[in-house]
Design a binder for these strands. Sequence first.
DNA 1: GGTCGATTATATCACGTCGATATATCGACG
DNA 2: CGTCGATATATCGACGTGATATAATCGACC
Lengths: 205, 205
Amino acid sequence: MLDIAILGLLMERDHHGYELRVQLRDRLGLSSNVSFGSIYPALARLERHGSVETVIAADGRLTALSTGSLSGERATLRSRRSAPGLGRRGRKVYRITERGRQEFARLLADPSTVDNGRNFSLRMALARYLTPALRVTLLDRRRGALLERLAELRAGTQVSDLDSYARAVMEHGARAIEFEIAWVDELLAHERINDEQDSYAGDAG
Amino acid sequence: MLDIAILGLLMERDHHGYELRVQLRDRLGLSSNVSFGSIYPALARLERHGSVETVIAADGRLTALSTGSLSGERATLRSRRSAPGLGRRGRKVYRITERGRQEFARLLADPSTVDNGRNFSLRMALARYLTPALRVTLLDRRRGALLERLAELRAGTQVSDLDSYARAVMEHGARAIEFEIAWVDELLAHERINDEQDSYAGDAG
DNA sequence: GGTCGATTATATCACGTCGATATATCGACG
DNA sequence: CGTCGATATATCGACGTGATATAATCGACC
């Protein structure tokens, strides 16, 4: 889960661990503050796998934060008295590799684990990296999973069997699913509109 | 998480592991099919802790297994042909202990981990075991957590910074939170109505 | 000008949950 | 008779979480 999210952020520019957490929340909508106990093991995993590489920031400030991939700067080394020249508590900046880009494309397009809401939202937030066809596939899968879950919910214990609180939870659950189906439909409609625009612009038939 | 859910189900009647999974979904709304890799360790944990005890059904067949304080009268004998529900393969039936009941009450009333949607829904589904005052506390806490998350979402990276897909995910996230706040408000209103009814009919018993 | 708390930052731990898998029993269907 | 699908228990590795430790730097206040 985190792998794809981290790779997605690194597609845009380099990041260090702490910053990734903020971006995970603000740009990918991962529920408030993913634990460092997830992020650092994930980074270690990705590095072991050759999907990312570290670019140790030699100076304390700046680093790759503002300039993105362009990193020709050989910065002013401030004299540090201890440890290898890591500024501000050794900051490790991570960069995606070619292998990582391929892995990212593979993970993103894989529609197998879309029955989980988080996985779906995550992939949608990164959907600009997908082809239109794959986007539609993803949305269709999610729609199917939601319909299935809704049917399952309605087919479960009959409502009369539950007390009013359990019933309220079930009914809210059903409404929430319908709410998300409506969203998915909206997104699908959007994809169709884009298709039409493409066929006007690109295909004169 | 599972502990409280399992204890909640066992408050009503005894269950064996496999059945718990179905009930977790159908009565407590836990997202489709909790893994056995969660259920069995949870049961072992609870047993170790003295919150539940096992009542082995020695014979694979039927075994009214005596308990069923509630299900006793009804569970006599159903037509034994295609009726689902009674197992083969040495079945371990779990029963809640007095210690378990106390533990359940303690866990249910604890409002500390209500920032997670699942924990909240779970506690709401079991809210009939709470006093009205504790129900309101729970709802207020959840409301606060949702407002906080909404503010955080709105305060994050400004929308113009995101591509249309990431933006769509963020906006849906915000709407989903508002949707749940509306639900919580509904539930709070209900609690107030019940309060009023109590004060009118309180001594009519 | 010194300390204090907040923020930035990396890392590790125990624990819980998940998904996959192994194993076994029974009823139904052919 | 075999095997398929549902019932049923159990374990495994992988992953995410929350708590905690460590540490440097920054701004604020006195």
